[in-house]
Amino acid sequence: MLQLVADGLVVGSVIALGAVGLTLTYSILRFANFGQGEFMTWGAYLAVSALALVLAVTGAGVMEPLGPFSFGWQLIPAMALAAVLTAAIALAVDWALFRRLRRQGNAITLVIASFGAALALRNLVQFLYGTLPEYYTREIQIAIRLVPRDVLGGLRITPDQMLVIGLSLLLVVALHVMLARTTLGRAMRATAMNPALARVAGVDVDGVVRATWVIGAMLAAVAGVMAGVVGQVRPMLGFDLLLPLFAAAILGGIGSVWGAVLGGYIVGLAESFSVPLFGAEYRAATAFLVLIGILLLRPTGIFGERA
């Protein structure tokens, strides 16, 4: 019981972080970006390469675990570098594709294009890295027993998993403060609400769009690395998370950061609790059930303002 909650929160943290990026791009760029999952995949793989680079440059060779964690400090600069590179990819795709389609002014064409771009990005990863899973570290981590087995089934969790929960919360709080307190944040909220008014109020909407891609892609990249830390880095990593991401973003209400976080936890918990009920093989279908449920009951989401 408790274990299921903990597992759900770990998965939910990854989903939440990806969904926050998705809900931002959805509300500001005004289309459902099917490429968001691929940014996670690219982030995870770029971190693999960046880690190799950092290890080569520092001459460390092998990563010494950092404190209780399975990975060394080298993963932190590697993750940062991967996030920057993923943002660069997002900007490049926007420049080559979405920017031109925005001018044609048909939102649904952007969705098709993002579907095509997602497939191309996913297969490019497969082409470059192959289909075998990668790991940041081979270090085996011992789970800490937080709750003894006779209390609600007990609870064991690894330091890595705790880090994933904490880091995702930290990033979301940082994003929230940015959106609430800074000019860029207000400009982003203003653009999401009414792009034409934002323009005449003096907002450089093209700049806001670029900032949105950068933030969304960087959050996705970090989420991808975290998924890799507690699991494996696979070409389908992001694709498999795309449906949970959409379910979480819609559940929370498009444009709502805290909604996406809550949605992420709910989808993560639902997935986790579905395993004893329906078996692990149908775990991925849970997000779809959540999605259908919210569309039938409250399509604007928990915190949604407009349909």
């Binding site: 000019t183 207000r186 203003a190 609400m193 009414n194 008014l197 109020a201 003096g202």
Partner: peptide
């Protein structure tokens, strides 16, 4: 129509406009 940012507070509407120039 729709000449204010409905999702921003009165203060944020003004702060944003001021910060942009």
């Amino acid at each position: 129509t729709e000449n204010v940012f409905a999702n921003l507070s009165v203060l944020d509407n003004l702060k944003l406009a001021a910060a942009l120039v």
